[in-house]
């Protein structure tokens, strides 16, 4: 990508890294949460459901500020984590955290829908054949919801790539540290003559998003065919 300047390339690479880690780390929790919401009955289920979806309806800036209040180095959780050597605030890992939180509702929603589409009778049959809950999930539910997991992951990745409000509030806009693609576009638009760099980044954004969608479509079709045994 010779036509990207080093600063622009830095933003693209950072965004890919942030979005990749955000999805990778939140995926197990996303699957667990989706399964709990789809299949289990427990007290406070509606509260959990509300909390999961909160980032979708809150202004992103509010979410970012809440993250700062929780994970800032002087905040209770952030302070504790700092003692363990983990710092989120104003680091790329913080950008990943913000992206993961913002993308979480979309991920959980997609996976939950696919879990609800799995016939519970199949899971029951697996149990009568000797499979414990965990085995039923691993051998029946999980393979059947792979397309849904893939869809959720891609959706979350796209959302994470484009996350702006919460990120800039939580970890600011430090080139090479926390300046993701959208923050970079924003920054370029603030300086005179930055339009051409901004346009190049916009093109990159579109290419990445399209590639993700096409890849997920192809993979989902392949998995669905395998799962349905067509």
């Amino acid at each position: 990508m010779a036509w990207l300047g080093p600063e622009e390339w830095q933003a693209v690479a950072l965004s890919l890294r942030v979005a990749g880690w955000a999805v990778l780390c939140s995926l197990p929790l996303g699957i667990f949460t989706a399964h709990a919401l789809a299949r289990w009955e427990f007290p406070g289920k509606q509260i959990v459901n509300g909390l999961v979806h909160l980032p979708l309806v809150l202004p992103p800036v509010v979410t970012g500020y809440l993250l700062l209040l929780t994970f800032g180095v002087n905040a209770p959780v952030g302070g504790f984590l700092k003692d363990q050597g983990i710092v989120f605030a104003f680091r790329w890992s913080g950008a990943a955290l913000a992206a993961a939180v913002m993308a979480f509702p979309l991920m959980v929603r997609a996976i939950r829908l696919s879990i609800e589409a799995v016939d519970p009778n199949l899971e029951q049959a697996a149990a009568t054949l000797g499979a414990s809950r965990l085995w039923v999930f691993g051998t029946v539910t999980l393979p059947l919801i792979l397309p849904g997991i893939l869809a959720g992951a891609i959706l979350a990745f796209a959302k994470a790539m484009g996350e702006f409000g919460a990120t800039i509030t939580f970890v600011s806009n430090i080139p090479g540290q926390t300046q993701t693609l959208p923050s970079a576009i924003y920054a370029f638009l603030q300086v005179p003559g930055g339009e051409s760099a901004a346009i190049r980044l916009v093109v990159v954004s579109v290419i990445v998003a399209m590639a993700a969608l096409v890849a997920s479509e192809i993979l989902a079709k392949r998995i669905a065919k395998r799962v349905a045994g067509g």
Binding site: L122, T139, V140
Partner: peptide, 13 residues
């Protein structure tokens, strides 16, 4: 116990 259900409930994958 081996349960044979009304509908076969085979694992499609």
């Amino acid at each position: 116990l081996g349960y044979v259900f009304q509908e076969a409930r085979l694992f499609p994958h």
